[in-house]
Design a protein around this nucleic acid. Structure first.
Lengths: 343, 343
DNA sequence: CTGAAAGCGCTAACAT
DNA sequence: ATGTTAGCGCTTTCAG
């Protein structure tokens, strides 16, 4: 076997190298590098100088194993490509920045199996906490979350039973609220346009709440249309054309997200359809991205950034009084924009 | 001191727990869980059963320390919120999926200092490779990359000197190419609209290439306008209004990205400006997101997904023949869309 | 095919 | 203020 710390030039530097270069014990070097414990200014300088000139980068793997502490927070989300999760991430990052914790993102593509795998992988790094989208998980994933022994925050949705803490909105209620606003504005021939995603439980709950509230007013969905894949804007356009062709007397279209809603709006403007007179439109999410369209689509803000912030605060233990099991319900606000008739 | 493995119910499970539960040595348990070495079918079963029923999740921290191997690839990008990097991520993920490697994302918000900090943090976890956007880094960051002793791939841009490997396009050339196409179509009074981001070197290089190529044809930029922050679509609209008010005889607007370009296009359509007759428009990126506008904006595909794929392949060592220092130049294609006059 | 011993690079806990 | 010792939980290596 080779001597310990043989002069292999490709080996990465260790604390020991810094210790030797500075003539200070490994332990003291460690203290300096972590700003822990009292170290004289003189030795601190020498150590930092040595570390810098060698280009030493601490090995967190060893540090984490020894200290049983990992400054990582796992964040598990379905997708990065729809504008909603990046905003959640922004909220999370903002809060974690001052805590020494670092978010690590995993993406599931709305697949429960993938979610389970990503979670397993993450937990195997023993993070300090997990923030995960949604309340629906495989039994196995749920068991892992329950047994992880760290703060777990399920985000976006509160219609269900969380493993530990939850921060989000009631999508069922959001759907109801939109239905009520639409009915109040006098629309009655209402169509729904959404995604073909059985695993998007939040969209599903909005749909259910929407239909429920219509039913209570004795109104049934006049038609519906679903899509999957492709550019959402374009799909919104195509679906709108299709549903209007099939059911020309619709007076309102409720889209399950703002992007397809915007596509629908653009279609209507191109066709010279009177919005919101002849046809009202609404989406969901409140994506700032779309500010700049000629007409502002009615929508409902999903409190994305705030959800990220609150979840991060819980993981970071900013609510010392509470041990966990906190449920934070945020209230989305309806933004009527220019596509619902004012009454 | 407490006994080793005292019955603390909150302690996370170790290999030893599985070993005891299955009556097999830790070593053999480890072999089963990693599918390494020969293990009889009988013991394999027993071990897996024990691990499953206990809910054991391996500790990768310990594993990584012992094996000196980490299946993580650091990916450092400026932003998640502009549609270009999520696509790069998709390419990376697709390739890494079959390699056992896992991407870990760090975001710099276009700040060199933040980039340095994120890189340091990442390297301290000893990843198997790093994929990082751009060729411009702080001296300290560059030194870290050079000394990391792992594959480094700088992506998006190849106008410069890479630390190790690089995959991207020449933004300078992309700018030139667009200028040439615009000139060829007969436009002469050309305005530029971009972001106020000194650290977005790729946008800067496109601008430089663009201006250079104009100069060679004896044409100067007639006007320019810069923005920062806010909804890109809206900003594009506002900037377009501003620049046209100031310099009404412009016959072409070159936008530094598709989102502000789309804002400009919407503005022109609203105002009834004849596009591309009176005024031509072009952006950059080729974001699929915008398919669905009434008119397709001229743009240039930045090969985002392909860049991600190629970078991941290099990190994963799929090009065994080559030791590193590979530079892959991709060629963006001009998509004239409906906003440049056909000649 | 299975097991025992020896660390990986660091830090907690205890000296001094 | 600084040093010493003993692991953290796993895998490598070497014996059976």
């Amino acid at each position: 076997m080779t001597k310990p710390h043989a002069s292999d030039p490709r080996r990465t530097l260790t604390l020991r190298d810094v210790s030797e270069a500075s003539g200070v014990s490994e332990m003291t070097v460690s203290r300096v590098l972590r700003n822990r414990g009292d170290v004289s200014e003189a030795t601190r300088e020498r150590v930092l100088e040595a570390a810098r000139s060698l280009g030493y980068v601490p090995n967190k793997i060893a540090g984490a194993l020894a200290s049983q502490r990992v400054n990582l927070v796992g964040v598990i989300i379905p997708s990065l490509s729809n504008m909603v999760f990046p905003e959640v991430m922004t909220g999370i990052s903002e809060v974690l920045e001052d805590t020494g914790l670092q978010p690590v993102v995993g993406v599931t593509n709305y697949s429960p199996e993938r979610e389970e795998a990503v979670l397993y992988e993450m937990l195997s790094w023993r993070p300090s906490g997990v923030i995960i989208a949604g309340l629906e998980h495989t039994p196995s994933a749920r068991a892992m979350l329950e047994n992880a022994g760290i703060p777990i925050v399920e985000i976006m949705d509160i219609d269900g039973t969380p493993v530990d803490s939850a921060v989000g909105i009631s999508h069922r209620r959001a759907g109801r609220q939109m239905a009520e606003a639409i009915l109040a504005a006098g629309y009655r021939r209402i169509g729904f346009l959404g995604t073909k995603m059985p695993e998007d439980h939040r969209a599903r709950k909005r749909y259910e709440g929407f239909v429920e509230a219509l039913a209570e007013a004795g109104v049934e969905l006049a038609d519906q249309e679903f899509y999957s894949g492709g550019s959402a804007l374009l799909k919104g356009r195509e679906m709108t054309e299709a549903i209007l062709k099939r059911t020309p007397d619709l007076d309102f279209l409720y889209f399950s997200n703002d992007m397809i809603g915007a596509g629908g709006l653009l279609y209507c403007l191109d066709k010279g359809i009177d919005v919101p007179g002849t046809l009202g439109l609404a989406g969901f999410n409140g994506v700032e991205l779309l500010d700049g369209l000629s007409r502002k689509l009615a929508t409902m803000d999903a409190c994305r950034k705030e959800i990220g912030r609150r979840a991060a605060e819980i993981v970071a233990g900013k609510h010392e009084g509470i041990i966990g099991g906190e449920v934070v319900e945020l209230t989305p606000t309806l933004e009527p924009g220019d596509t619902i008739r004012r009454v």
